[in-house]
Design a binder for these strands. Structure first.
Lengths: 138, 138
DNA sequence: CCTAGATGCTCTAGTCACTAGAGGTTCAAG
DNA sequence: CTTGAACCTCTAGTGACTAGAGCATCTAGG
């Protein structure tokens, strides 16, 4: 039986975050000992580990709740889980695309400073004026 | 003189967002007409345009406040602005790196479903168990 | 000049996923 | 039995907005 601190160290999820997950119903209320402190078993450890890993992969808490709900039943579950994972993959790819455009634009802007004498700062001008940009960055 | 709605259409920043920027002090309180409605001139339009563009480039509101503060004085400003822009570039690059690791991992996971017969869902198992991952994804 | 409907105003509360702090209780080691 | 770490609940704050209630004002058509 683990205390909340031990569970935190075992999973890498901070103590207040564990309590927060309980508050919002993502994990079931933990069993309590005589002094009203939370105690966790292996199943609790596994569930929090699942949540941690899914969070690291960028899933939102609501999606994680869905994924854990699926885990109960079997059958078409795998397909549903796969769809949620694919949706997440699409989101990740879209964000990568967008960030690469930003990278290109920021690269251009940060090179403006070098020759920058004269009165006005080219960096600030570039930040203020989208029409100077090479491409769209949504 | 633009109304807040006209300013919103001109810049692409939503009306409540403009009021929010005023609330937090990012833009100065707008002049009001006889009926207490906000009116904006060219300078207000320019400032909001600057904010919009910098937001699109991923800068936080606090950084944008700094950048606009710099715009007043001249001299070493350009260097300071350049540093803020470079810091943002570094952040963007770090996020790209991280997202690419996630992309690889999610790609792997979403390919598990194909042969997936048997009792347990491979996708859910992979989500729950970091030790199956090929690399680190922070 | 009047009216209808769009637009504006303030204020409060909600979003997401936590994080911080106050003020008090319980546990574990010596 | 004492001490200090860990635990408890509760409230409030973060960033960058978004939504809604309930009212006032503006503008174009008749």
């Amino acid at each position: 039986m683990l205390s909340i601190g031990a569970l935190s160290r075992a999973t890498g999820v901070k103590v207040p975050t564990i309590r927060y997950y309980e508050d919002i119903g993502l994990i079931a209320p933990a069993a309590r000992n005589a002094g009203n402190q939370r105690r966790y078993d292996q199943a609790g450890l596994d569930r929090l580990g699942f949540i941690k890993h899914a969070r690291d992969l960028g899933f939102g808490l609501e999606e994680i709740g869905e994924l854990m709900g699926l885990n109960g039943e079997l059958g078409a579950d795998c397909h549903a889980a796969d769809q949620i994972a694919r949706a997440q993959l699409d989101r990740v790819r879209a964000r990568i695309t967008r960030l690469r455009r930003l990278e290109a634009e920021l690269e251009r802007i940060t090179h403006l400073c070098e020759g920058g004498a004269g009165g006005t700062c080219q960096v600030l001008t570039a930040l203020g004026d989208h029409s100077q940009c090479l491409g769209d960055h949504n």
